[in-house]
Design a protein around this nucleic acid. Structure first.
Length: 579
RNA sequence: CGGAGCGUAGCUCAGCCUGGUAGAGCACUUGCUUUGGGAGCAAGACGUCGCAGGUUCGAAUCCUGUCGCUCCGACCA
């Protein structure tokens, strides 16, 4: 492709609304343009890279035995009602109406559609295992789209769904996808790793996320140095807080003391009260399906949303409002406690974190504005309904699995594999006749890759001060020829010859045929980050030489006669490294 | 949904406080010069100042509403 024939609108200045480096480079390198918040047009350069990511995914999915299909984006709400996700995923569903006012939803994912398909077409254990995948648009009504392609309202996803007759079969299908994902991200030139994950709204009971470490990532991952344990912070457990929870009873009965105006852990920890945060019990109140529930964590701990959803058995919960709390418990937030809850609230369940087990000599709210209680022994004074893990772990705590200290790293989630079990097959009647002559629901798995997000993750991970440094496997072009003279000059003539020969060899090559100054061409070359640049200048050409300059690497002079051979060899070798 | 900020040329922004009819740099067009890391000179084209009301002799500027964008928050009592 000739630069003057395509559209590569590079920007010298950084667009004001791009916050993170990959988002800035997407815009500056002429890869995408924003139509509206969370909606982007792919320009020619960007589309080429996107197609390459898709091709890698397609090759690895096919290799793993998955079958490509294409499912509708526009979906009837009925199947979402049957799966129960019309409610649980309500926040992300786009609704549209047709001319007869019938409602439709835009698919944020396709479990309901594929399970409906399987219900009709898979009737025997002999037809399994089957794994269907597609690469296509997804629509999610994101609370807050941000960071370019990272969190968009419309994005490209590869989603796959496996159907097995047995649990063992489902595990094998899961393993195949796990391995395929590992290969896919490596081939895209990404450093990624798998972590144990919470299953969230999709449901299921076994799951890994594929993470790309990046400070701008929206996820936090806990891991240990030996690489034997890694988990999303939503899921990660530890052997407990770094400081021991007090467990020696003062022997005194609970004692009310005045704390006018004290509504935070911090204020109670400060003078004149001086109750350390880890000697306090934090009382949180939620509304779960219309009913109040109390969660207790240590004063210096944070409750974990995902773990709470697991504890409550539903993602449909929220923090109770101050009014709801006052109505139910009689005190305002800041003075709450689970010791003396009113008789009217006796049926409110109290979930307490394991870190509070055997806690004694603690302080908590008195359930009366302006007062707290001290000398609390949790076993004696609080009627705990259930002991649970609902705290967010902190760096330095010891791993349950290995005993090593946990470290925390931010990361971008690019892929997610779930073992779903029979949740959807049961609700949508995807049953089959097994060897035993009985009908059973198929055992499912689902596997997603954020394709557009993966593309941006590559940029986030592969860049320098001058621009993008594409891995050759996903670069829009493999080679960029930069003649330093304009049209008609000897350098341009030589460039044209090499360009033509590379094309016949099947090398993906871009020719910068603009009549621009060298500085402009060099800056743009670095910005768009083509892996190998061929510089053709008058001086070196006079000596019969051209320059090979890998992006970010050292410049090498080679005789014109050997240039094409050397270039194609370089491209082949680099591609081989990413196999 | 709550809070904050911003909407002026294709891009980055100034002008707004203190009302008088729109600017700079980059990009774009033409010409000349220049040509190894985002050139110089000259000439030129590009804006209903997000939109709608209002105040005023007069509004980019003040007021009201509205739409859009960005950031922070939306369990942390």
């Amino acid at each position: 492709m000739r630069w003057t024939q395509t559209l590569i609108p590079t920007l010298k200045e950084t667009p004001a609304d791009a916050e993170i480096i990959s988002h800035q480079l997407l815009l500056r390198a002429g890869i995408v343009r924003k139509l509206s918040g969370g909606l982007y047009t792919f320009l020619p350069l960007g589309l080429r890279s996107l197609r390459k990511v898709e091709k890698i995914i397609r090759e690895e999915m096919d290799r793993a035995g998955a079958l490509e299909v294409s499912m509708p984006v526009l979906q009837p709400p009925e199947i979402w009602q049957r799966s129960g996700r019309y409610e649980t995923a309500a926040d992300v569903l786009y609704h549209v109406r047709d001319r007869s006012k019938k409602e439709w939803v835009l698919g944020p994912t396709h479990e309901e559609v594929i399970t409906t398909l399987a219900a009709g077409e898979i009737n025997s254990y002999r037809q399994m295992p089957k794994n269907f995948y597609q690469i296509g648009l997804k629509f999610r009504d994101e609370i807050r789209p941000r960071f370019g392609l990272m969190r968009a309202k419309e994005f490209i996803m590869k989603d796959a769904y496996s159907f097995d007759a047995t649990d063992e079969g489902a595990m094998a299908s899961y393993k195949k996808m796990y391995d395929a994902y590992t290969r896919i991200f490596a081939r895209c030139g990404l450093r990624s790793f798998a972590v144990e994950a919470d299953t969230g709204v999709i449901g299921g009971n076994y799951s890994h996320e594929f993470m790309v470490p990046a400070e701008t990532g929206e996820n936090e991952v806990a891991y240990v140095d030996s690489n034997t344990y890694a988990a999303n912070i939503e899921k990660a457990g530890s052997r407990g807080p770094l400081t021991a929870t007090p467990s020696t009873s003062t022997g005194s009965a609970p004692e009310k003391f005045a704390t006018p105006g004290v509504v935070t852990i911090e204020t109670l920890a400060a003078a004149p009260y001086g109750v350390p945060a880890d000697h306090q019990i934090k009382t949180l109140v939620y509304l779960v399906k219309g009913k109040l529930a109390i969660a207790l964590v240590r004063g210096d701990d944070q409750a974990n949303e995902a773990k709470l959803a697991g504890t409550f058995g539903t993602p449909l919960y929220r923090a109770a409002t101050a009014d709801e709390i006052v109505a139910g418990l009689g005190a305002r937030p800041g003075s709450l406690g689970a010791v003396s809850i009113p008789d009217t609230a006796k049926d409110v369940p109290i979930y307490a974190d394991h870190a509070l087990r055997a806690a004694a000599g603690m302080t908590t709210g008195a359930n009366e504005d302006g007062f707290h209680l001290r000398h609390i022994d949790i076993e004696r004074d609080i009627k705990v309904t259930r002991w649970v893990d609902i705290r967010t772990i902190k760096a330095g705590e010891l791993s349950v699995a290995t005993g090593e200290p946990l470290k925390i790293q931010r990361a971008i989630e690019v892929g997610h594999v779930f073992k779903l079990g029979t949740k959807y097959s049961e609700k949508l009647d995807a049953t089959f006749l097994a060897e035993d002559g009985q009908r059973h629901p198929a055992v499912m798995g689902c596997y997603g890759i954020g394709v557009t997000r993966t593309l941006q993750a590559v940029i986030e991970q592969s860049n320098d001060k001058d621009g993008i440094r594409w891995p050759v496997s996903v670069a829009p072009y493999q080679v960029l020829i930069t003649p330093l003279g304009g049209s008609g000059t000897a350098t341009m003539v030589a460039a044209e010859e090499i360009y033509a020969q590379l094309i016949t060899l099947g090398i993906e090559v871009l020719l910068d045929d603009r009549d621009d100054r060298p500085g402009v061409k060099f800056k743009d070359a670095d910005l768009i980050g083509i892996p190998l640049r061929i510089g053709i200048g008058e001086k070196s050409l006079a000596k019969g030489e051209v320059e090979l300059k890998p992006r970010g690497g050292a410049l090498e002079l080679v005789p014109v006669s050997q240039a094409v051979e050397r270039i194609s060899t370089w491209v082949r070798q680099e591609l081989e490294k990413l196999k």
